[in-house]
Simulated scan of single mutants.
Amino acid sequence: MKKIILGFAAMLFCVQFSQAQLLPSLKLGIKGALNFSSLKSDGKWLNSDTKTGYQIGVWGRVGAAGFHVQPELYYSQKKAGFKDEDGENGEAVLKSMDLPILLGTKIGLGPLGVRIQAGPVFSFAQDGKVDFKSATDIDNYKKSSTGIIGGIGADIRNFTVDLRYEHGLSNISQNSDRSQKVSMWSVGIGYAFL
């Protein structure tokens, strides 16, 4: 009889735990990040150094059964130092609204957990320009671009910490002979209100 009661209690616990994992969850919050970006070019016409920029925005997360979707919207300022084929040094500043849509999973219980996430990111240039701080005037940049982003993160109660890598998939220059793509690492923190 004791074994039957313990078995029944264990079965109820498992059912309750599995139902809790299947229920949808929702989180909304804010985030900020430092990013370390560079411009990658085809050929040797542009050498880029990594510079520090920032991101600030909002995020949401909807999940069930151990998986989640996390859309974000943030203002991003990406910087890259460069030297062009003429030896001209300068700094590129890319200002955009970025929309990543991350798919992921969380490993852990309760308020503590580690996340693995990846997905596409869509960038929309603030003014359709890339500002170059040098004597060289380089313009004709596309107003939108796409990339892929992935990384790891941790949740500690309402706080989040993320380490991500973003790789540009599309050429941000309208000049097909001088293809440029953004490559970026970011370290961010966030806070969930819900």
Rank of each mutant, 00 (worst) to 15 (best):
R164D: 09
F159C: 09
I152V: 15
K129M: 06
F159R: 04
N158W: 05
T160L: 12
D137M: 01
A135L: 05
L163T: 10
K129C: 03
A135T: 13
G128I: 02
R157Y: 14
L163K: 01
I149Q: 15
K133W: 00
H167T: 12
D139R: 11
G128P: 03
A154R: 08
Y141S: 03
A135Q: 10
D137G: 01
D131Y: 04
Y165M: 05
A154P: 07
K143R: 10
G150H: 05
T146H: 01
I152W: 05
I149R: 14
D162K: 12
F159P: 06
G150S: 08
G147M: 07
N158G: 00
L163Y: 14
Y165R: 10
F132S: 08
E166Q: 15
I152Q: 08
Y165K: 11
K133Q: 08
I149L: 13
I152P: 07
T146Y: 07
G147T: 09
I138A: 09
D127M: 02
S134K: 01
T136Q: 09
A135N: 14
I148G: 12
D139I: 02
R157A: 15
L163I: 15
I152F: 14
D139E: 13
A154S: 13
N158D: 09
N140Y: 03
D127R: 05
G153C: 08
R157D: 13
V161I: 15
D139W: 03
V130P: 01
G151S: 11
G147P: 09
S134F: 02
G128V: 04
D139C: 03
F132Q: 06
N140D: 14
V130C: 08
Y165P: 03
R157N: 13
S134C: 01
A135V: 06
S134W: 04
L163R: 03
D155R: 12
D137Q: 10
D155A: 13
D162E: 14
D131R: 04
T160V: 10
R157T: 13
T160E: 13
T146A: 08
G150C: 08
A135P: 00
I156Q: 07
F132E: 09
G150F: 09
V161T: 11
T160Y: 09
G151C: 10
S134L: 02
R164W: 08
G153Y: 08
G153M: 07
G147E: 06
D139F: 01
S144T: 12
D127A: 07
L163F: 15
D162A: 11
G150T: 07
I156R: 05
S145T: 07
D137P: 02
K143M: 08
V130K: 01
T146R: 04
S134D: 03
D139S: 15
